[in-house]
Each structure stands twice: as C-alpha cells, then as structure tokens.
Amino acid sequence: MLEHTKKAYLLLSDGTLFEGYSFGATGTTIGEVVFTTGMTGYGETLTDPSYYGQIVTQTFPLIGNYGVNQMDHESDRIYLKGYIVREWCDQPSNFRCEGDINTFLQQQGVIGIYGIDTRSLTRKIREFGVMNGMVTTEPITDKEAALKQIREFEITDAVKSVSGKQIVDFVDNISDKMTAVLPSTKPNTNNNFHIVLFDFGYKYNIARCLARRNCKVTVVPYNTTAEQVKELNPDGIMLSNGPGNPAENVEVIETIRELVKMQIPIFGICLGHQLMALANGARTEKLKYGHRGSNQPVIDLNIDQTLVTSQNHGYAVVGDSIPEGVGRVSHVNANDGTCEGVEYFNAPAFTVQFHPEARGGPLDTDYLFDRFMKLIEDHKRNQ
C-alpha cells in the first residue's frame, strides 16, 4: 500500500469522527454506513446494486490484493456511495487482474477512506445499529452543519434508480471467459424455459445461473405490469435482489399480487423475497445492522441442513406474519432465527433471503436454481 498524505474523514450521525486517508475519488459523500464480513468478493460488493445509497465498510483488513476485473462485476457500475477499508493494496497480484481498486474507484467517482479502525467502527454499528455518515476529503470546519446534512439523508427511489428502463433479452459475454480460466460447473440441462427476470437491481450472476440451465432470460424493468408479463408468455418469473425499504415499492407489490393470480412459477431472491411476502399479506422489518457477507449460516428446514450463504440485506420478512394457509417459513438464519425463505401454498412459488447465485466457495445453495427448473417442469406437466 502506498503511503498517502491526503487526509480523509468519516463523520457518523452520532458525532463520532474517524480520521484516515483518501483513496479513490475525492470530495464529499453521505450515505447509510453498513459493514460486510466477506473475506473476498469485494469486486462483487462494489458493483452490487443492492448497496445503493450506502457507505460500505469491509471488515476484512486487506482489500484489493487480487485487483479488479470485469468477470467479477455484478452490474455495469458501482452503486454504493462510499467505501471504507482498513488497508488497500496498490500492487495486486492475480492471473485475472485487470486493474487496481484505487483506479477503479477513481474512474467510477467513488470516494474511499482507509487507515481507520474498522473494528471499532463495526463494533459501533453492531451495538447501535446502522447509521448515516459522511466521508469527505475536505476538513470539516462546521461539524454541526455537517451533522445536520447527515441526519437528514434518506435513501429514496432506490429500486427506480438502479433498475433498467427497457425490456431486453439477457446476453452474457463473460461466461465463456470464465470457463476458460475457472472450473466449469455448467449443469447438464436442456430446459429451454423462458424466464422473465424482474430487475429491481439484479446481479448479473442470477441471469447467468438461469442461462447456464439453457433458459432464455428476458430482463424487465421494475415497473413492468402483470399484463406486459402475460404478453411475454414466460414459463417462470424471477424476482431479483435490490436496494432500499421493500415496503416503499407499493406499485410493484400490487403487480406481484396480480402475478400470483396468474399461477406462473415464481422464484424470489433477497428484495424479491421481501416483496413477494408483502404481496401475500406478510410484514417486513428493518434489522439492527443487517446481514452482509459471504459466510452467513442458514438452516434449510426441509432437509435439516445448515448452508453457507452470501447475503446483503437490511430488512427481513417477519416469519410469524405470513398468513396461515398462504405459505410457511422454509429457511431460518442460524445466528438470529430470522426468516430466510418462504414456500407458498397459494401459488407455485418459493423465495429466499440469501443469494444462491453468489455462494461463497462451496455450491451449498446452487440447488435452488435446479429446484426452480423442476417447479416449472412439474407445473407444465400438470397444466
């Protein structure tokens, strides 16, 4: 890591000030400060649209050691508001490396800060919950004025801000490159199903996991109507991940209610899981500091096994609020017992709170995509 003398500051809404050094872009940014516990996968974290409006803290102390490359990107750009690390590596070493993290942040206009005590920051968030903060490369001369700005910040129009604007067929230009340098895990399937993927801020690998199963994937904007979906005549519907408070998406929730009536197989991930629950009469709640990282333990109640999962969410479905006869909790978090999955009785549908397309090493949760394929097969057979 290069020794830089350019100061940077992190000011939290409770008045706590951390002093560190600048990397990436310069300037001032305000967002919701969260932490993620992943030891690797910072490229995916940076480009995950679910981090929209947030300033992300990496708890792993060294970030950037394997550089950045396009194969790891989950979207077309960085959506988070700022980046906090203990130490960043300016001389990455990896056979896939295409650049360094400092340059990537500069190109994307994202402000970073390093050299602060990320352990202390993480402990504060764990104790008091996520809070707004400001990262700036300028001296804070009027702390009270800065605190006023910080406390007034809200994440608004999150899904609208990250969703695509047009209906498009997913075309993957990366998978061939990935299989050239990484072991192939391509399933031996010939489904040829047509899947409509709602883009609430979807990650590329969700579409890739479907495409690897020989599915045609049509990506649709968040505000696509049930009637438009019907015209596309899909075999299945995927509800993607995304940022923000799920309850704010009133029109989307109403659309999902209409989709449920159409009895097309549905698979929801993360925000899609929450929106499906809200559409079926359940409630969501904001967690104290959320689940973010690639090492979250989840129990699949159907097979009585604990899975290692990748997660990134600040809200959760209240399991007890699922109406009787509508669905049941299928997965729970092994740490805090929160709902991590729901199976539905009123439609051929299931959802999970975690990311099966982003399993952290082992293929613990890859089976869920195969389960979705079987759900579609069974539905078509019974029609």
Rank of each mutant, 00 (worst) to 15 (best):
D169W: 00
F198C: 04
E144G: 05
V135S: 01
T122N: 09
D172H: 02
V171M: 05
S175M: 08
A211M: 10
L210Q: 09
V171W: 00
A145G: 12
T118I: 15
I140Q: 04
R208I: 12
V168F: 05
S120Y: 07
I206N: 12
N191P: 02
N205M: 11
I140T: 04
Q149T: 08
R212T: 11
A146M: 07
F128P: 03
K165F: 02
V196G: 05
T136D: 07
V217W: 02
N188D: 15
I116Q: 01
E144F: 03
C209K: 15
T224P: 01
A226V: 06
S175E: 11
A211F: 05
K165N: 14
N192A: 06
M178R: 14
R126T: 12
V181Q: 11
L210I: 05
A145L: 09
N173F: 08
V220D: 08
F128G: 05
G129D: 11
Y202K: 12
R208V: 13
V135R: 04
P183M: 07
V219A: 03
T224H: 00
T122G: 10
I174G: 01
D157P: 03
N188L: 07
T224F: 01
V159E: 06
T156G: 01
I174F: 09
K216S: 11
K148P: 00
F198A: 04
T224E: 02
V181L: 13
I116Y: 00
I167A: 03
A146E: 11
Y202D: 01
R213C: 10
L182R: 14
I174P: 02
N192L: 05
S184R: 10
I150W: 00
D142M: 10
K148A: 12
N205V: 06
I167K: 15
G164T: 01
R213S: 12
E127R: 15
I140F: 00
R213I: 06
F198K: 05
R212M: 08
D169S: 10
K203G: 14
K216T: 15
Y222T: 05
R123I: 09
I206L: 12
T224A: 05
L121V: 07
I140E: 05
R151L: 04
L197Q: 06
Q166A: 10
R151F: 04
T136K: 08
F193G: 01
R208A: 06
S163V: 07
T218D: 06
K148N: 13
V168W: 00
S163L: 01
L210H: 09
P187W: 00
P221T: 02
T189C: 02
E152F: 07
L147V: 07
R151M: 10
G201H: 04
T118P: 02
R123L: 15
Y204M: 09
G133T: 10
T185P: 03
N191Q: 13
D172V: 06
T122H: 02
E152N: 13
V159R: 07
I195R: 14
G129S: 08
N188A: 14
Q149P: 00
K216M: 10
K203V: 12
I125R: 04
A226G: 12
F193D: 01
T156P: 05
I125W: 02
Q166H: 13
N190D: 15
L147F: 03
Y222Q: 12
R151Y: 00
R208G: 08
K203P: 00
